[in-house]
């Protein structure tokens, strides 16, 4: 009798756990069903590779936004990855225990600050800074990349630190025993051994940057044209959706959902590669 009861509760908990599967399936299907008509009418190639987005004249090419997202993300990684990985190395291997007690909450707070606050900071501080030092209007690819570079730091630091900590202590001790100093032991044994986890950290940061919306909207200028340069405005896939969803109708509306679909597929691809590299980490099989 007890066994039957146990089975009942096991199944109830299973049903609860199934909710998140249902959620993912529904998000997928609503995006597919909503985005397909636009892809059919416009044509997949025309939609993905079209260089002009002009809803008023029925031109729906999202290549400018795809490139916008890619450029902004790549530039953000140039700022964010070295600083993030080095900070993770600092936290895992260099930080004195007392300092760590302050440092960890600082990184957690950086992760907790809302993107609209980052965006606001970018708007009132970074935009004028870029405008005064580099010229242009200040709302530019460079500004968005700088801001995103800061925003992805906590993501990269947290995952990379966990990866570094998962490397067996014997690696470090072995290097010391061979005569390497602390810095060398860390950089030439621990860091290479944690490679897989570090790549996972970068991919997660990349996903965060590709998906960021509100902060980018406030500093990137948002012109819907092919990216022109570091100091010119760009529009990303995410911002395209938020800016035009308010007044879009018919094909324009469907085209925006299709934009979200492309973004979603991007993110799923990134997630799969993240899972792949995370699997290669120590302590993860």
């Amino acid at each position: 009798m007890n066994l039957q009861k146990d089975k009942f509760f096991r199944n109830s908990f299973f049903c609860i756990a199934f909710v998140s599967v249902v959620a993912v399936v529904m998000i997928c299907s609503f995006l597919f069903v909503g985005g397909m008509p636009a892809l059919e009418k416009i044509g997949v190639m025309k939609f993905l590779l079209g260089t002009r987005w002009r809803p008023s004249s029925e031109l729906y090419g999202i290549l400018p936004m795809i490139l916008g997202s890619m450029y902004v993300t790549m530039c953000a990684l140039i700022f964010g990855v070295p600083i993030g990985i080095l900070t993770a190395i600092f936290m895992a291997r260099f930080c004195p225990r007392k300092l760590y007690r302050f440092f960890k909450p600082i990184v957690e707070l950086m992760a907790g600050i809302p993107s609209v606050i980052y965006g606001f900071f970018g708007l009132v501080v970074l935009v004028p800074l870029v405008r005064d030092n580099f010229g242009g209007t200040g709302s530019s690819l460079l500004t968005a990349a700088l801001l995103l570079g800061i925003m992805i730091l906590p993501t990269i630091v947290t995952v990379a630190e966990a990866a570094l900590r998962a490397v067996p202590e014997s690696y470090y001790e072995g290097a010391l025993a061979l005569g390497a100093d602390h810095v060398r032991s860390v950089f030439f044994t621990i860091v290479p051994a944690a490679k897989s986890g570090l790549v996972a950290a970068i991919i997660l940061g990349l996903g965060r940057a590709v998906g960021e919306t509100m902060a980018v909207i406030m500093v990137a200028g948002n012109q819907a044209r092919m990216p022109q340069g570091l100091l010119e405005g760009v529009r990303t896939m995410t911002t395209n959706i938020v800016i035009e969803m308010g007044y879009a109708t018919d094909l324009h509306y469907d085209a925006l959902i299709a934009t979200a679909l492309v973004l979603f597929l991007f993110i799923v691809l990134l997630n799969l590669s993240f899972a792949y590299f995370k699997g290669g980490m120590f302590g993860n099989g």
Binding site: S20, A23, V24, M26, I27, F30, L31, L204, G207, V210, G211, E212, T213, T238, I241, V242, M245, L256, I257, A260, L263, F264, I267, V268, L270, N271, F274
Partner: peptide, 13 residues
Amino acid sequence: TLAGIPSVVYGLF
């Protein structure tokens, strides 16, 4: 996957 979906996609959904 849920954790990785950008908030704007949630908004659209």
